[in-house]
Simulated assay, not measured.
Amino acid sequence: MRDISLRHISVPLIKPFKTALRTVETAETIAVVITDGEGRRGYGEAPPTLAITGEQLEGIAAFIRRASALLLGQEPLRLEAALALLQRGAVGNSSARAALDMALHDLAAQQAGLPLYRFLGGYRDTCRTDFTVSVDAPARMAQDAADIAASGFRTLKIKVGLGDVSLDIERVAGIRAAVGPGVKLRLDANQGWSAKEAIRAITAMEDAGLDLELVEQPVPARDLKGLAQVTRSVGTLIMADESVFGPQDAMALLAERAADLLNIKLMKAGGIRHAVTICRMAEACGIECMVGSMIETRIGITAAAHFAASQPNVTRFDFDAPLLLSADPVAGGVRYEGADMFLSPLPGLGITDLKAEYMTEL
């Protein structure tokens, strides 16, 4: 690697994104561009998601600058050696590590002359994403869900976990009535319930025939016993998200059978290298995975989509983040046609440039 540079990207969302953990009005991220000796550029990004990864913009930039000293001069095709250097002495900083990991994978695949999904295994070249309904008043959420379904999305991710459990049940009932039986509903409580509240809410929704596909992270991240209790007490599939960052977390969840599904995010895993490890661990245990994201641009989503497309054990996709932005700061990369996503046949991520009007040099 010849050069590693950073850019700060800031793009307002179309409307505020609300969950049980936070409200986001503007997408902020640090973009990483690694240039090799022949002028090829690899791209990555790291959004500061303080409520989940504990990172802020300044810390991400500082970590990447420190790590850059280890990576400069390394050969991208010696990928494992470069990634091992990146992990050395790194505690936390999962999104910052992910940004560098993405860019290194992008460059390695470019040097190999392959799209990244083929470089990683080449299982498929398309994905179909869900679309998120932010937590709000029940009537507002029902209308939002109906509008999204009418635009062609057949799987909705419903944010709950903010306020009384009875209100969450009302929210989901209203959404099911608004969209009808042909739309899948995934709930995401973002750690907003206790185990008892989760069992009560999910059981009530099952009894009401609301037909949930899954419920994501119903309890606090470190409450593995509570997560396992919920998983064993309800018929609906339970997915771990904030409970699983790296392979060690995945090992604990899988050993306990604390969840039916795992949500892998590059920003939690520290990049593609550990994401592949988690996915294969889950596959060995008969546990399917979803790949999701934070509030990211098409840099991170393109990298996540290439990883997801390369793995047969990834059966669900949550990649709507770029659709929530008021503008697109990325040229090239994954292409959307409604809910369907198509990976570029170009080598690497297929990202060709970043648009200057949305970023500042760091």
Results as ranks from 00 to 15, higher is better:
K225C: 12
L224V: 14
R176D: 03
I169W: 05
E197V: 03
I199G: 03
K196D: 15
G174V: 07
D188G: 08
E170Q: 15
V183M: 09
D223A: 12
K184C: 14
G182P: 01
L187P: 02
G182M: 10
D207N: 12
A208P: 02
E197T: 01
I199Y: 04
R186E: 05
R171I: 12
I175D: 01
R171P: 03
L227M: 14
L224Q: 05
E216N: 08
A173Y: 00
A208N: 03
I199T: 07
S166L: 15
Q217I: 10
S166H: 14
L210K: 01
V179A: 03
E216C: 07
E216V: 06
G174T: 06
A221R: 12
D207T: 13
E213C: 07
G174A: 11
L187K: 02
E170S: 15
G209T: 09
P218R: 03
P181I: 11
P181N: 13
N190I: 05
L227I: 12
R200C: 08
R222I: 12
D188V: 05
D223F: 07
A198Y: 02
P220M: 11
L227S: 07
G163E: 11
K184Q: 15
V165G: 02
Q217G: 08
L162R: 12
E206K: 06
V215E: 03
L210P: 01
A178D: 06
G180Q: 10
A201C: 11
A198S: 12
E197Y: 02
K184P: 00
S166D: 15
D211K: 11
N190K: 01
V183D: 00
N190V: 06
L187M: 14
V183R: 04
T203V: 08
K225S: 14
K225L: 14
R186V: 11
V165C: 08
V172E: 00
G182H: 14
V172Y: 00
L212F: 05
I175C: 04
Q191A: 11
G182F: 10
V183Y: 03
L185R: 04
D211V: 14
I202C: 05
Q217A: 10
P181C: 09
E197G: 15
R171W: 05
A208H: 04
G192V: 04
L187H: 03
P220G: 09
V183C: 13
L224H: 09
E213R: 06
R222L: 14
E197P: 01
I175H: 04
G180I: 10
E170K: 12
I169V: 15
R222P: 01
P218C: 13
E206V: 07
V165W: 10
G182R: 13
R171N: 11
D164I: 04
I175N: 01
A178K: 07
E206N: 08
L185K: 07
A173N: 06
P181L: 13
V219R: 00
A177M: 06
